[in-house]
Nucleic acid binder design. Structure first.
Lengths: 178, 178
DNA sequence: AAGATGTGCTTCGAATTCGAAGCATGACTC
DNA sequence: GAGTCATGCTTCGAATTCGAAGCACATCTT
């Protein structure tokens, strides 16, 4: 034990006990919800959560279509994963893919009528299930508070500089001592 | 579709607009956090989130050991998935598996010293990262509120009757028609 | 105490996931 | 307008995921 407390003494924990507990409970609850939802959607409509989200985002989008990148960003999914999932949906006739007039590189994904119909058919049951799991035990104030807090967190995370997000080299980086 | 509006009239949406928005934002934020954390842990300690959670749960457990089932339940993971992950951790010498004295069927998983060491080494950075992402934009009251709300949700979901949870046939099921 | 039913874990197979690499188009500089 | 860097998407390979089925032990019933 040669710790004659130099400069770094008792090492303040970065997270207070309350924060740690909050983090754990948040994670646990989110995982539980996620698994239940996955199961429900699969059973009820034969869709995975991502597929459901894709249909939902497209149904809500201007003109019912979005580019692959926009979609990947909205549903928080990898590009390659999205390619795979959209491929499945297209095979099932729930979405279409076509070239973008604006940008020759882009692919526009659009919901089909069947896609909209399926989404509309599934939504009520899904909403009911979400209500039973998430909102049933919460008051209106709880919901408002939760929305407010999570919105702030989401915006904060989205605004954070991507940690190791230079997979593609950045342009002429002036560097540390530029 | 011979729906000549029978008893079910305008179909009140199950979720209010506020609830729907809350659900979306919650999901989005949780997914964002999850992805970031996954990446950070992988980069920083060579572990997946589940592996990290397993080490954490074991480190915090009485005697540093738990059965596979207890562990699967705590980290919210499938049994077979846990078998796989624990197998990986064992290969890396971070945990041990052994028979349970109480129940010959059970397997007891225990953290090794190396496992504890690794977990302890990784934790601070992880905590810092969680702070930056989740707690930085929140006040103390926000954190308290979030913990309280999520605790209620977690307990509620845990208490719910498993929806389609009869993967193994139930005992002498009288069946639909006796 | 034998037979039936329940529980704990692993194996197996099929589907999904992601990052890295590849390919094509766009944008910017000189 | 050729060269260079940036962006959008897909392909590829390797790793992970889950449920169903299988195996072994435990518990309950008669």
């Amino acid at each position: 034990m040669s710790d004659h407390e130099s400069h770094a003494a008792p090492v303040d924990p970065v997270l207070s006990p309350g924060q740690l507990e909050t983090y754990f409970v948040f994670t646990e609850a989110a995982d539980l919800l996620q698994h239940q939802i996955e199961r429900q959607l699969r059973t009820d409509g034969g869709l995975s959560t991502v597929q459901f989200q894709i249909l939902g985002r497209l149904s809500g989008a201007e003109g019912g279509r979005l580019t692959m990148t926009q979609l990947a960003d909205l549903v928080v999914y990898s590009r390659s994963g999205l390619t795979y999932q959209v491929g499945l949906l297209e095979k099932s006739g729930l979405v279409n893919r076509g070239p973008s007039p604006d940008d020759e590189r882009s692919t526009l994904v659009a919901v089909t009528d069947r896609g909209r119909a399926l989404f509309g058919r599934i939504l009520p049951d899904h909403a009911q299930r979400v209500y039973d799991m998430l909102f049933d035990p919460l008051s209106d104030e709880d919901v408002d508070s939760l929305r407010e807090v999570m919105t702030r967190v989401r915006d904060h995370v989205r605004a954070l500089p991507p940690r190791s997000a230079a997979p593609r080299r950045r342009r002429a980086d002036p560097g540390p001592q530029g």
